Simulated scan of single mutants.
Amino acid sequence: MSKEFEIVREFEVDVPPEEVWEAVTTGTGGYLWPMDPPEPREGGQGPFGSTVTAWDPPHRYTNRSEDVGFPVQSVNQLDYTIEPRDEGRRAWVRYVHSGIFTDDWNNQYDGASKHTNFYLHTLCEYLTHFAPRPVTFAQLNGPASSATTQALAAVGHALGLADDAAAGTKASVRGPGGRTLDAVVDYRNPYFIGLRTDNALIRFFGRGHWGAPLGISVHDFAPDADAQVNESAWQDWLNGVFSRS
């Protein structure tokens, strides 16, 4: 049964509004996946076939899709309102994700809501620590055996994270090829783990809660970063985790 949804979040970040605007309208892959930037006008084409319905730099940006193409969603809208704080040194952001889910409403809403929290946290990490450095993006998924609610715990153990390693903890984690990565655990709950190194944001998505395999995205800001190398290395690492589990 089709039903509308709305997910609203508000937050502040220690960068000027112009930097938030740049991050959410250029689609570099700094905190999400790479995407085509919107045509800079109301009525222009937005990412993934959407239409720009509001364009007021650096204060308001909205895009809307009415033929999403997903079997469980028919309408999708993303709306950003950005206002200055502290004489323009900081920004206040109101983000609204809305639309229509056509099936499995509770599960879809729960997944979208929890993913929103993680994506917006990653946006703030990107703005605070890395923007506007160029980024190399890679993403990958685990095998079918990682589509369980226990998958993220297995990843945390493979990384060498203590069970009580909460957000803000510094850790030496076990990465691909036996390498040790010095990182900060910048996000952790039963659904997601976020790691921040000097040159990267590495995100782990425990999507087994919603019936999907575990995912990883790597936002690499090192000058010599190679997306294929990152993808292959982390894919081998992830496959190894679930071949042992």
Rank of each mutant, 00 (worst) to 15 (best):
E4V: 01
I7V: 15
W21K: 07
E22P: 00
G29W: 06
R41S: 08
G46W: 00
T53L: 05
A54T: 10
D56R: 14
H59Q: 15
R60F: 05
V68R: 00
V68P: 00
G69V: 10
Q73N: 11
V75S: 03
V75W: 00
L78W: 05
I82N: 01
P84V: 10
R90H: 12
R94I: 07
H97K: 13
W105V: 09
S113M: 11
K114V: 14
H115D: 09
T116H: 09
A131T: 09
R133C: 08
P134D: 12
T136G: 04
N141P: 00
A147E: 05
T148N: 06
T149M: 11
A154G: 05
G156I: 01
A158F: 07
A165C: 10
R179V: 12
T180V: 15
L181M: 14
V184S: 11
V185L: 07
F192T: 05
I193N: 04
R196F: 03
A200I: 05
R207A: 08
R207F: 13
R207D: 08
P213L: 06
P213K: 05
I216G: 03
P223E: 05
A225L: 02
D226K: 09
D226A: 12
N230L: 04
E231Y: 02
G240M: 09
F242C: 07
